[in-house]
Computed example of a mutant assay.
Amino acid sequence: MLNIKKVNLAYKRYQQNFETGTKFERIKARYLNNKKEVMELSELNDKERDHILLINLGSVITYYLSIWKNDVLISQNNRVEALKQMQIAVFQQCMAQDLYKVRYPQMMTEYRFREVVMTLIHFTMFGWNREENILFEFIVEQFGGSILEVEESNKHTWFLLELYLKYRNKELWESNHNLSKTVKEKYLKAKVKNDLIPDDLEVYNEVLTNWETKELSIIKSLVNEMVEYHSILASGLGESLEFGDFRYAFYPYEILFLLHVRKKRGLPNPEHFDDFLMNTPEAKMNIQDPEPYPELDPLLKMVDEFYRKNYPEYIPNQHGELFQ
Protein backbone atom coordinates (compact mmCIF):
# COMPACT_ATOMS: atom_id res chain seq x y z
CA MET A 1 0.00 0.00 0.00
CA LEU A 2 1.23 3.47 -0.89
CA ASN A 3 2.40 5.52 2.10
CA ILE A 4 2.25 9.20 1.03
CA LYS A 5 4.29 10.36 4.00
CA LYS A 6 7.06 7.90 3.12
CA VAL A 7 6.97 9.04 -0.52
CA ASN A 8 7.32 12.70 0.50
CA LEU A 9 10.22 11.95 2.83
CA ALA A 10 11.99 9.94 0.13
CA TYR A 11 11.49 12.74 -2.37
CA LYS A 12 13.02 15.28 0.02
CA ARG A 13 16.09 13.05 0.36
CA TYR A 14 16.19 12.59 -3.42
CA GLN A 15 16.07 16.36 -3.96
CA GLN A 16 18.57 17.17 -1.21
CA ASN A 17 21.04 14.69 -2.69
CA PHE A 18 21.44 16.94 -5.72
CA GLU A 19 20.86 20.24 -3.93
CA THR A 20 23.41 19.84 -1.13
CA GLY A 21 24.80 16.29 -1.20
CA THR A 22 26.34 16.14 -4.67
CA LYS A 23 29.66 17.97 -4.96
CA PHE A 24 29.22 19.53 -8.40
CA GLU A 25 32.61 21.22 -8.41
CA ARG A 26 34.29 17.85 -7.85
CA ILE A 27 32.24 16.29 -10.67
CA LYS A 28 33.07 19.18 -12.98
CA ALA A 29 36.77 18.96 -12.11
CA ARG A 30 36.81 15.26 -13.02
CA TYR A 31 35.03 15.99 -16.28
CA LEU A 32 37.51 18.75 -17.18
CA ASN A 33 40.47 16.55 -16.26
CA ASN A 34 39.13 13.76 -18.48
CA LYS A 35 38.49 16.26 -21.25
CA LYS A 36 42.16 17.30 -21.08
CA GLU A 37 43.24 13.65 -21.19
CA VAL A 38 41.04 12.99 -24.23
CA MET A 39 42.53 16.02 -25.96
CA GLU A 40 46.08 14.78 -25.33
CA LEU A 41 45.29 11.27 -26.59
CA SER A 42 43.64 12.75 -29.67
CA GLU A 43 46.60 15.01 -30.45
CA LEU A 44 49.01 12.05 -30.11
CA ASN A 45 46.60 9.78 -32.01
CA ASP A 46 47.45 7.22 -29.32
CA LYS A 47 45.71 3.99 -30.40
CA GLU A 48 47.59 1.95 -27.79
CA ARG A 49 45.70 3.66 -24.99
CA ASP A 50 42.54 4.75 -26.73
CA HIS A 51 40.34 2.56 -24.50
CA ILE A 52 40.77 5.44 -22.04
CA LEU A 53 38.48 7.46 -24.32
CA LEU A 54 35.70 4.97 -23.70
CA ILE A 55 36.30 4.91 -19.96
CA ASN A 56 36.22 8.71 -19.80
CA LEU A 57 32.74 8.87 -21.33
CA GLY A 58 31.35 7.98 -17.90
CA SER A 59 32.39 11.37 -16.56
CA VAL A 60 30.28 13.04 -19.27
CA ILE A 61 27.19 11.21 -18.03
CA THR A 62 27.87 12.11 -14.39
CA TYR A 63 28.58 15.74 -15.30
CA TYR A 64 25.38 16.20 -17.29
CA LEU A 65 23.34 14.24 -14.76
CA SER A 66 24.24 16.89 -12.18
CA ILE A 67 23.40 19.71 -14.61
CA TRP A 68 20.09 18.10 -15.57
CA LYS A 69 19.06 17.62 -11.94
CA ASN A 70 19.94 21.21 -11.13
CA ASP A 71 18.03 22.49 -14.16
CA VAL A 72 14.90 20.41 -13.65
CA LEU A 73 14.79 19.13 -10.09
CA ILE A 74 16.17 22.19 -8.28
CA SER A 75 15.55 25.17 -10.60
CA GLN A 76 12.44 23.58 -12.17
CA ASN A 77 13.00 25.19 -15.56
CA ASN A 78 12.10 22.08 -17.63
CA ARG A 79 15.35 22.13 -19.65
CA VAL A 80 16.17 18.77 -21.23
CA GLU A 81 19.50 19.74 -22.85
CA ALA A 82 21.65 17.94 -20.28
CA LEU A 83 19.43 14.85 -20.40
CA LYS A 84 20.01 14.72 -24.16
CA GLN A 85 23.80 14.84 -23.69
CA MET A 86 23.56 11.92 -21.25
CA GLN A 87 21.71 9.75 -23.77
CA ILE A 88 24.22 10.63 -26.51
CA ALA A 89 27.07 9.63 -24.19
CA VAL A 90 25.50 6.19 -23.56
CA PHE A 91 25.07 5.78 -27.33
CA GLN A 92 28.76 6.56 -27.84
CA GLN A 93 29.71 4.09 -25.11
CA CYS A 94 27.90 1.37 -27.06
CA MET A 95 29.47 2.35 -30.36
CA ALA A 96 32.98 2.46 -28.87
CA GLN A 97 32.57 -0.75 -26.86
CA ASP A 98 31.90 -2.59 -30.12
CA LEU A 99 35.47 -1.78 -31.20
CA TYR A 100 37.06 -3.49 -28.20
CA LYS A 101 35.14 -6.77 -28.10
CA VAL A 102 38.01 -8.56 -29.90
CA ARG A 103 40.99 -6.70 -28.47
CA TYR A 104 39.71 -6.82 -24.89
CA PRO A 105 37.14 -9.66 -24.74
CA GLN A 106 37.03 -9.53 -20.91
CA MET A 107 36.60 -5.75 -20.75
CA MET A 108 33.70 -4.73 -18.52
CA THR A 109 31.19 -2.43 -20.18
CA GLU A 110 30.74 1.12 -18.96
CA TYR A 111 26.96 0.80 -19.30
CA ARG A 112 24.21 -1.56 -18.20
CA PHE A 113 21.42 -3.09 -20.25
CA ARG A 114 18.88 -0.86 -18.48
CA GLU A 115 20.79 2.28 -19.54
CA VAL A 116 20.91 1.18 -23.18
CA VAL A 117 17.15 0.56 -23.19
CA MET A 118 16.60 3.90 -21.48
CA THR A 119 18.60 5.62 -24.22
CA LEU A 120 16.64 3.78 -26.93
CA ILE A 121 13.29 4.96 -25.61
CA HIS A 122 14.55 8.51 -25.13
CA PHE A 123 15.78 8.65 -28.72
CA THR A 124 12.28 7.49 -29.68
CA MET A 125 10.62 10.19 -27.58
CA PHE A 126 13.04 12.80 -28.95
CA GLY A 127 12.14 11.80 -32.51
CA TRP A 128 15.79 11.03 -33.35
CA ASN A 129 14.95 8.27 -35.81
CA ARG A 130 18.39 7.69 -37.34
CA GLU A 131 20.11 7.33 -33.99
CA GLU A 132 17.25 5.21 -32.63
CA ASN A 133 17.57 2.76 -35.53
CA ILE A 134 21.35 2.52 -35.19
CA LEU A 135 21.08 1.83 -31.47
CA PHE A 136 18.37 -0.77 -32.01
CA GLU A 137 20.54 -2.58 -34.54
CA PHE A 138 23.34 -2.59 -31.96
CA ILE A 139 20.93 -4.15 -29.46
CA VAL A 140 19.86 -6.79 -32.00
CA GLU A 141 23.46 -7.69 -32.85
CA GLN A 142 24.77 -7.74 -29.28
CA PHE A 143 21.69 -8.88 -27.32
CA GLY A 144 22.78 -11.42 -24.71
CA GLY A 145 26.44 -11.21 -25.74
CA SER A 146 29.52 -10.08 -23.86
CA ILE A 147 28.98 -6.37 -24.57
CA LEU A 148 25.24 -6.37 -23.89
CA GLU A 149 24.49 -8.79 -21.10
CA VAL A 150 20.77 -8.90 -20.39
CA GLU A 151 20.52 -10.52 -16.98
CA GLU A 152 18.43 -7.63 -15.72
CA SER A 153 16.13 -7.65 -12.70
CA ASN A 154 14.28 -4.38 -13.34
CA LYS A 155 10.79 -5.21 -14.58
CA HIS A 156 10.26 -1.76 -16.08
CA THR A 157 13.32 -2.22 -18.32
CA TRP A 158 11.82 -5.36 -19.85
CA PHE A 159 8.48 -3.59 -20.11
CA LEU A 160 10.02 -0.65 -21.97
CA LEU A 161 11.87 -2.85 -24.43
CA GLU A 162 8.82 -4.98 -25.17
CA LEU A 163 6.58 -1.92 -25.53
CA TYR A 164 9.14 -0.44 -27.94
CA LEU A 165 9.11 -3.65 -30.01
CA LYS A 166 5.32 -3.66 -30.17
CA TYR A 167 5.16 0.03 -31.04
CA ARG A 168 7.77 -0.26 -33.80
CA ASN A 169 6.56 -3.70 -34.93
CA LYS A 170 10.00 -5.21 -34.39
CA GLU A 171 11.29 -8.38 -32.78
CA LEU A 172 14.19 -9.63 -30.69
CA TRP A 173 14.98 -13.32 -30.78
CA GLU A 174 11.94 -13.70 -33.07
CA SER A 175 9.62 -12.34 -30.41
CA ASN A 176 7.96 -9.16 -29.19
CA HIS A 177 5.70 -10.91 -26.70
CA ASN A 178 6.66 -12.02 -23.18
CA LEU A 179 10.24 -11.07 -24.01
CA SER A 180 11.72 -11.51 -20.53
CA LYS A 181 10.07 -14.94 -20.23
CA THR A 182 11.35 -15.94 -23.69
CA VAL A 183 14.91 -14.92 -22.81
CA LYS A 184 14.76 -16.64 -19.43
CA GLU A 185 13.51 -19.89 -20.96
CA LYS A 186 16.25 -19.87 -23.61
CA TYR A 187 18.86 -19.18 -20.96
CA LEU A 188 17.53 -22.05 -18.82
CA LYS A 189 17.82 -24.47 -21.74
CA ALA A 190 21.31 -23.24 -22.53
CA LYS A 191 22.26 -23.40 -18.82
CA VAL A 192 23.16 -19.71 -18.86
CA LYS A 193 22.83 -17.68 -15.66
CA ASN A 194 19.35 -16.14 -15.57
CA ASP A 195 18.48 -15.69 -11.90
CA LEU A 196 17.87 -11.94 -12.18
CA ILE A 197 15.54 -12.04 -15.19
CA PRO A 198 11.97 -11.68 -13.85
CA ASP A 199 9.40 -14.45 -14.35
CA ASP A 200 6.52 -12.01 -14.06
CA LEU A 201 6.35 -8.31 -15.00
CA GLU A 202 3.40 -7.80 -12.61
CA VAL A 203 1.44 -4.64 -13.49
CA TYR A 204 3.33 -4.26 -16.77
CA ASN A 205 1.86 -7.48 -18.18
CA GLU A 206 -1.61 -5.96 -18.22
CA VAL A 207 -0.28 -2.72 -19.68
CA LEU A 208 1.42 -4.59 -22.53
CA THR A 209 -1.84 -6.40 -23.25
CA ASN A 210 -3.86 -3.19 -23.33
CA TRP A 211 -1.38 -0.54 -24.46
CA GLU A 212 -3.40 0.15 -27.63
CA THR A 213 -6.79 0.30 -25.94
CA LYS A 214 -9.12 3.04 -27.13
CA GLU A 215 -10.90 3.07 -23.77
CA LEU A 216 -9.69 6.04 -21.75
CA SER A 217 -11.00 4.51 -18.52
CA ILE A 218 -8.82 1.42 -19.03
CA ILE A 219 -5.61 3.36 -19.68
CA LYS A 220 -6.35 5.67 -16.73
CA SER A 221 -6.67 2.65 -14.45
CA LEU A 222 -3.47 1.08 -15.79
CA VAL A 223 -1.49 4.31 -15.46
CA ASN A 224 -2.71 4.64 -11.87
CA GLU A 225 -1.45 1.13 -11.15
CA MET A 226 1.93 1.97 -12.71
CA VAL A 227 2.12 5.17 -10.67
CA GLU A 228 1.40 3.30 -7.45
CA TYR A 229 3.93 0.56 -8.25
CA HIS A 230 6.63 3.12 -9.09
CA SER A 231 5.84 5.33 -6.09
CA ILE A 232 5.96 2.48 -3.58
CA LEU A 233 9.38 1.41 -4.83
CA ALA A 234 10.68 4.99 -5.06
CA SER A 235 9.69 5.53 -1.45
CA GLY A 236 12.29 2.87 -0.59
CA LEU A 237 15.03 5.19 -1.80
CA GLY A 238 18.43 3.56 -1.47
CA GLU A 239 16.83 0.15 -0.82
CA SER A 240 14.66 -0.82 -3.80
CA LEU A 241 16.54 -2.10 -6.86
CA GLU A 242 13.73 -1.17 -9.24
CA PHE A 243 13.19 2.54 -8.56
CA GLY A 244 15.29 3.12 -5.47
CA ASP A 245 18.37 4.72 -7.00
CA PHE A 246 19.17 8.39 -6.53
CA ARG A 247 19.42 9.12 -10.27
CA TYR A 248 15.94 8.28 -11.56
CA ALA A 249 13.77 7.30 -8.58
CA PHE A 250 11.17 10.00 -9.22
CA TYR A 251 11.52 10.23 -12.99
CA PRO A 252 8.59 8.12 -14.33
CA TYR A 253 10.04 7.64 -17.80
CA GLU A 254 8.32 4.27 -18.26
CA ILE A 255 4.93 5.98 -17.89
CA LEU A 256 5.96 8.92 -20.06
CA PHE A 257 7.03 6.51 -22.80
CA LEU A 258 3.67 4.71 -22.67
CA LEU A 259 1.86 8.04 -22.99
CA HIS A 260 4.19 9.04 -25.84
CA VAL A 261 3.59 5.95 -27.98
CA ARG A 262 -0.15 6.13 -27.39
CA LYS A 263 -0.19 9.77 -28.44
CA LYS A 264 1.76 8.90 -31.60
CA ARG A 265 -0.87 6.26 -32.38
CA GLY A 266 -3.66 8.81 -31.91
CA LEU A 267 -4.98 7.08 -28.78
CA PRO A 268 -6.51 8.96 -25.83
CA ASN A 269 -4.42 9.68 -22.73
CA PRO A 270 -5.29 11.13 -19.33
CA GLU A 271 -4.91 14.91 -19.47
CA HIS A 272 -4.44 15.53 -15.75
CA PHE A 273 -2.79 13.62 -12.94
CA ASP A 274 -3.55 14.09 -9.26
CA ASP A 275 -0.80 11.89 -7.83
CA PHE A 276 2.58 13.07 -6.56
CA LEU A 277 4.80 11.17 -9.02
CA MET A 278 3.30 12.55 -12.22
CA ASN A 279 3.54 16.09 -10.90
CA THR A 280 7.26 16.09 -10.11
CA PRO A 281 9.43 18.46 -12.20
CA GLU A 282 10.96 15.53 -14.09
CA ALA A 283 7.53 14.15 -14.99
CA LYS A 284 6.44 17.55 -16.29
CA MET A 285 9.44 18.23 -18.54
CA ASN A 286 8.49 19.69 -21.89
CA ILE A 287 9.88 17.27 -24.48
CA GLN A 288 9.25 18.55 -27.99
CA ASP A 289 8.34 16.32 -30.93
CA PRO A 290 10.89 16.20 -32.42
CA GLU A 291 13.39 17.46 -29.90
CA PRO A 292 16.18 19.60 -31.45
CA TYR A 293 19.66 18.10 -31.37
CA PRO A 294 21.94 19.83 -28.85
CA GLU A 295 25.33 21.23 -29.68
CA LEU A 296 27.48 18.18 -29.06
CA ASP A 297 29.55 18.18 -25.88
CA PRO A 298 33.24 18.88 -26.76
CA LEU A 299 34.50 15.70 -25.08
CA LEU A 300 31.91 13.58 -26.92
CA LYS A 301 32.84 15.27 -30.17
CA MET A 302 36.57 14.57 -29.73
CA VAL A 303 35.95 10.92 -28.91
CA ASP A 304 33.69 10.49 -31.93
CA GLU A 305 36.20 12.16 -34.25
CA PHE A 306 39.05 9.98 -32.96
CA TYR A 307 37.17 6.73 -33.56
CA ARG A 308 35.89 7.86 -36.96
CA LYS A 309 39.46 8.67 -38.06
CA ASN A 310 41.14 5.54 -36.74
CA TYR A 311 38.53 2.80 -37.10
CA PRO A 312 36.73 2.33 -40.44
CA GLU A 313 34.58 -0.33 -38.73
CA TYR A 314 33.31 2.20 -36.14
CA ILE A 315 29.54 1.92 -36.58
CA PRO A 316 28.81 5.67 -37.01
CA ASN A 317 31.16 5.69 -40.01
CA GLN A 318 28.48 3.73 -41.85
CA HIS A 319 25.88 6.44 -41.25
CA GLY A 320 27.57 9.80 -41.81
CA GLU A 321 27.21 12.66 -39.35
CA LEU A 322 24.80 12.02 -36.50
CA PHE A 323 22.96 14.17 -33.96
CA GLN A 324 22.47 17.06 -36.35
Results as ranks from 00 to 15, higher is better:
L57G: 04
N210A: 04
K69I: 14
L208F: 11
I139G: 04
A234T: 14
W68V: 10
Q93H: 13
Y167H: 15
L237Q: 10
E185C: 03
T209G: 03
E225S: 11
K166R: 10
Y164S: 06
L256M: 11
D274F: 08
S217P: 08
N129D: 12
A190F: 07
I74G: 09
K181P: 02
Y311K: 06
Y100L: 07
F24T: 13
V227N: 02
P312D: 12
N317L: 02
F276V: 08
A96D: 12
L233I: 09
S240G: 04
I134N: 01
E132K: 09
V183G: 08
F24K: 09
K28T: 12
K166F: 11
K35H: 11
E37D: 15
E25K: 07
V203M: 04
K301E: 12
L259C: 13
N194Q: 09
L172E: 04
K284R: 14
S42V: 02
K191W: 05
H156G: 00
Y164I: 02
E19I: 09
Y167E: 06
N224E: 13
Y164H: 07
R262F: 05
L53S: 00
S221L: 13
L222F: 05
V117E: 05
V116F: 10
N224G: 12
W211S: 01
K84I: 07
E206I: 05
L120R: 04
K69G: 14
E321V: 05
F91Q: 09
S66D: 14
T280P: 03
N56G: 10
K12W: 10
P270H: 07
F246K: 13
A234M: 08
L237I: 12
D98M: 14
L277F: 06
E40Y: 13
G127K: 05
A190H: 11
E115L: 11
M39A: 14
Q318E: 10
K69L: 08
N205D: 05
R103Y: 05
N77V: 08
L299Y: 07
Y104D: 10
K5A: 15
H156T: 03
K12D: 10
P270T: 12
N133W: 02
R49P: 15
E40N: 15
N3M: 09
M226E: 13
K184P: 14
L222G: 04
D245M: 03
D199T: 08
S231G: 02
K47H: 00
L161T: 01
V261S: 07
N310D: 06
V90A: 08
V90W: 05
E40P: 01
P198H: 14
Y229A: 03
L41Y: 00
N17Q: 11
T182C: 11
M118G: 08
